[in-house]
Amino acid sequence: MNFKGTLPTLILEALRHEPTHGYRIAQQIKERSRGVLDFKEGTLYPALHKLENEGLVKSHNSVENGRPRRYYRITESGRKALSKDRAHWREVSQAVTVILGEA
């Protein structure tokens, strides 16, 4: 399913509980959406870098199972942006549900 525009919000949500790396973020989004939200994983990293440029996430290098990894963690402004996005999404989805319910 195409979910263009919502990927940054989904990334922030995936980082809400603990810092993690890109591969795990991708897996988390797919698993939590039960495979409905499928996306090309090559587009995940540009979105992560954009969030980093905006100061919504921070990154650091680490090693996992002998493999160098870049870990991302959500910042305080990232949490604020996430709660704003969540409120906005609720509003939009309620409006769409109302319209589709009328049909």
Binding site: K40, G42, T43
Partner: peptide
């Protein structure tokens, strides 16, 4: 295949890096 189209990724990378 899971990574998707490299050109699309390049286009997006050039916007942020």
């Amino acid at each position: 295949a899971a990574l998707g189209d490299a050109r699309t990724a390049n286009c997006q990378y050039r916007k942020v890096l």
